[in-house]
Simulated assay, not measured.
Amino acid sequence: MSYVEISFADEKDRAAITATVEDRLLHALAEENEQSDNEAFVLKATDDKGKLLGGLTAGTSYHWLLIKTLWVDDSVRGAGLGARLVELAEHEARRLGCHAAWLDTSSPDAHRFYQKLGYEDFGILGNLRGQSLPDHRRWFMKKDL
């Protein structure tokens, strides 16, 4: 191999490089393994003036839904908006042929929220005593659709 430079991507290039790397990886995986439809989607919740109140980003792969991010504005938290976003994502995933969903969270409140929606732990990463941040946990959760 000839000279190769490895460096951090500039902030302006990150999104394009991320998209290229993900696209090329999915293409390579498709050559090795039978693929389902890999779809990415974003849900948004807005008020009557167009203000963003919440959103969810997700993708599908190998007939699994991955909920990447979920956010709900503090002003409407606890009113069921998060559950509605997850429900719509799960509905779309079933439409796309998914049989299950998974996600991860490091928020104890979000962990309890997802448990109420039927998600179960399948793995936990946690810091040991003396490591920073103490008592930090990241829960990996799944749910059959």
Score class of each variant (00 low, 15 high):
A101W: 01
V86F: 03
A100L: 08
D73Q: 11
R94S: 14
S106V: 03
I67Q: 00
T18K: 04
R14E: 14
E22N: 13
T46I: 15
D10C: 09
A19T: 11
A83D: 09
L70H: 01
A89D: 01
A15C: 08
A58K: 00
R129F: 12
T69L: 08
T46M: 11
D10S: 13
A110F: 02
Y119G: 05
E32T: 12
D135H: 06
T20V: 04
V4C: 12
F41E: 07
Y62M: 13
H63Y: 14
D104M: 02
E32N: 05
L65M: 03
L81R: 04
M141C: 10
R77M: 08
D109N: 10
K44V: 15
L125G: 00
T18A: 14
F8E: 15
L85S: 01
P108W: 02
I6E: 14
E11P: 06
I17G: 10
L66V: 05
A89I: 03
E32A: 13
G97T: 11
L85C: 02
G123N: 07
L103P: 00
L128V: 08
P134E: 10
E87K: 15
D144W: 07
T18R: 07
H111R: 06
P134S: 02
I6C: 12
I67K: 00
H99D: 13
E11C: 07
A9T: 04
E11N: 12
I124D: 03
Y114E: 05
F122R: 02
V42L: 09
D47L: 06
D135L: 04
E39T: 11
I6N: 12
